[in-house]
Each structure stands twice: as structure tokens, then as C-alpha cells.
């Protein structure tokens, strides 16, 4: 994804993707990165230099809360869970994204086969 438009979309959507993944339950950074990659069919892949700063910014803004715990592989990991403010923000972002993507679809006449 070297296309600047694609990069901007990717960057702009990272926050919503992270919030959506931690909504399902507490997750650590590596797991979030892997899930984005897997669920996007490897279309989306975030660098550590983007993912972790995004997590820290979300934590600073109180949208996620990080705490140390034990991961599924038994190792000690810092896991992030969604806060109430994060949940509201996610709902807001989902609505905005839906509105945005529908508008784009209408104008660009994107058809889904």
C-alpha cells in the first residue's frame, strides 16, 4: 500500500480498528497487530512505529486502559481494554465511517460483486 490515499485511509482508520478489536476483549499490542493483518486478509499491516504510538495516544486520551496481565500463551503482557469513553468514541466513529463510506460509494458508484 504505497498509494498516498490508501496510506492516509489506513492511518485514519487505525484508531477505529484498535478500538473495535479491544471491544471484543482485552488484547495486547502484538495480538492487535496480528488480528488487523489476519482479518484484513493481509491488506492492512501496521508498523510497530504506528501501532504502539496509536495505543499510547488512545490510552492518554482515556479511550483504552492498559494493564499488565497474562496472555493466552502464558506470558506477561500489557493488555488494553476499552473504556466507557472509548466505547462512545467507537460508536461515533463507526457511524461516521458508515456515513463516509456510503457517501463515497454513492459518488464513486462502487459496486460489490
Amino acid at each position: 500500500m504505497d498509494d498516498p490515499v490508501a496510506n492516509a485511509l489506513k492511518k485514519g482508520s487505525l484508531e477505529m480498528l484498535v478500538l473495535a478489536l479491544v471491544e471484543e476483549g482485552p488484547r495486547h499490542g502484538y495480538e492487535i497487530g496480528k488480528l488487523i493483518e489476519e482479518r484484513s486478509g493481509r491488506a492492512l499491516r501496521f508498523h510497530v512505529a504506528s501501532l504502539y504510538p496509536a495505543l499510547y495516544a488512545l490510552e492518554r486520551r482515556g479511550l483504552v486502559a492498559g494493564s499488565w496481565g497474562t496472555a493466552s500463551n502464558g506470558r506477561r503482557r500489557r493488555c488494553y481494554r476499552l473504556t466507557r469513553a472509548g466505547r462512545r468514541k467507537l460508536a461515533e466513529q463507526r457511524a461516521r465511517w458508515k456515513e463516509f463510506s456510503e457517501a463515497i460509494d454513492t459518488i464513486a458508484k462502487v459496486s460489490y460483486a
Binding site: H28, G29, Y30, G33, V48, Y52, Y56, R75, R77, R78
Partner: peptide, 13 residues
């Protein structure tokens, strides 16, 4: 905390 978290990321990878 940040150092540990990034080290864990590398370990997992």
C-alpha cells in the same frame, strides 16, 4: 513499561 512492551512485541514476533 514502554521498553518492556516493545521487547515483548519483538519476542512474540
Amino acid at each position: 513499561e514502554i521498553f518492556a512492551e516493545l521487547a515483548h512485541q519483538l519476542e512474540d514476533a
